[in-house]
Amino acid sequence: MQERLIMTQEDVRRALARVAHEILERNRGTDDLIIVGIHTRGVYLARRLAANLMEFEGVEVPVATLDISFYRDDLRARAPSKIQPTDIPMGIQDKRVILVDDVLYTGRTVRAALDALVDFGRPAQVQLAILLDRGHRELPIRADYVGQNLPTAIGERVKVRLIETDGIDEVALVIDDEIEEEELFEDLDLEEDDDE
């Protein structure tokens, strides 16, 4: 098993800074904005984007967290995952929601997140920010803000590591030498870091 480094700590920092600027540009400021992170790593990325917005504009944009366990389309297929807190104290009615996750892959997580979101109200708009887009969509979903695009093979795995969860900021591509059987399980396993 080998790993190829895709993004270093600096790359991650720059990508998040750029995405924050793009969010400001596209929304002409921060009015009605709310950043919603998808558990687990999306939450930390959401907080970092909010910190960037604070630094660039001096405005505190609210951050909310979303767990999508209840909205998955593959409940039977996986081991029980820990349900993490969904916390949207400010509500999303008529807000512009920036949905944040680490990896965009099949699009199924985002589909579930959209379903989860609308249970909390009717947002004016939902935009999607992603640290890494690795392709292979199975649903008609695209990101509005992308840290980096990375064409991958389906058999490959992407590991996003963040200081908050893994002690280091980096994105790596994992190439399995003896893939096959293990790979079959990995594809099902959203809990792995491949977790889009």
Binding site: S69, F70, Y71, L75, D115, A116, D119, F120
Partner: peptide, 10 residues
């Protein structure tokens, strides 16, 4: 505690 007390899990 939500306004809409319903999730599609099951």
């Amino acid at each position: 505690g939500r306004d809409i007390k319903k999730v599609p899990a099951l």
